[in-house]
Design a protein around this nucleic acid. Sequence first.
DNA 1: CGACCTTCTGAATGCACGTTCAGAATTTAG
DNA 2: CTAAATTCTGAACGTGCATTCAGAAGGTCG
Lengths: 201, 201
Amino acid sequence: MHSEGRSFIEEARRAQIIECAIDAISTLGYAKTSLARIAERAGISTGVISYHFGGKDELIKAVVTEVATLATDMMVPRILAQANATDALRAYLETNLAFMRVHRRPLLALVEIITHARGTGGGPGPYAAQHRTALEDVERVLAWGQKTGEFRRFDPRVMAIAIRGAVDAVPAELIVDPDLDLDGLARELTTLFTLATRSTT
Amino acid sequence: MHSEGRSFIEEARRAQIIECAIDAISTLGYAKTSLARIAERAGISTGVISYHFGGKDELIKAVVTEVATLATDMMVPRILAQANATDALRAYLETNLAFMRVHRRPLLALVEIITHARGTGGGPGPYAAQHRTALEDVERVLAWGQKTGEFRRFDPRVMAIAIRGAVDAVPAELIVDPDLDLDGLARELTTLFTLATRSTT
DNA sequence: CGACCTTCTGAATGCACGTTCAGAATTTAG
DNA sequence: CTAAATTCTGAACGTGCATTCAGAAGGTCG
């Protein structure tokens, strides 16, 4: 008997199922991923998933939390370590692309979920907030640079949309062309947005 | 008897069904749009759709063709009318956003289809070529500007990804914030990419 | 050893989907 | 007006899905 909330076996199964879900979603796509496919990869019955997660929605939520945490832990410290907004923007782009290189499949799964999950009525999905937060994080860096005079005057919202749009376009490109040079891409994007944001002397 | 391929009634029904499909997809999202939902909006039985289009896939293809033609007809002439690459890039961004303003729902439906349709094995979907062509069109404009010396040296592929990424991010933003100022957006994006591409004198 | 709890299986259930089709309704042709 | 072709309905499949559940299997502890 254990006083903790979850037993050892439970924790292991959850991790395994989440792993298989990431694998399935990243290769099959969100729409074609069913509990049966995930269970198949894990070599278990579909009932086990419902047993451990209560349902599909909760499993998906667990995957999102898992990957989002992974991303945050890797990216946030590096970005916050920068002394000025220009370097922060550079770090933002570099860490984003670095994450794609290191955690490609989890990232693809996350993108699949965020873009494909919709509310019951067709409205913004349950993970729209996630996207919004990401946008606001970028806006904050941009506002910082404008305050210090490093950046010219522009609508931070629009620039943030452009930056996130460029970053989010990469995973899709990665599916078509798996041999994409992510380091080169990071360098080009950094130059691009440095030129686009820097204060016109 | 008609010598043409399609009767009057057939043409009318096809148009109506395509219209309802666009309406359904743009408001419900691709995943939640079924033939039943489309038929419901048209006030007909689901069999009619199969009768006129042969199946769901063909209907979707018809929608894509319809909207893509609409977009091409509106955008290509305006872009080709420009005398230099800088103006062409500006025209490209402006016409893209203008199209979103005029044909918002069809455009949303098109984006839904392109991003959500996947091959049976999970590979690139049947409309990946569409996306690739769009990317190459941008690359062509960029290469033009580099040849004339208007643009600095950069990887046209990467810049194209960033430009299309920024443009493609707008519809998603439009769902969350329907009152987005598209004209202002166009102006900001033009400035942004003009600064990013222009030759460093 | 035996009672108990956790974990799992495999089948059953109900639902939504795309497609098909016999026959009815409607339009067109002679 | 009659006959044929076109167009539509409503129901019937067959499939895949998420969920549920009775009972088996496995481990734990008294």
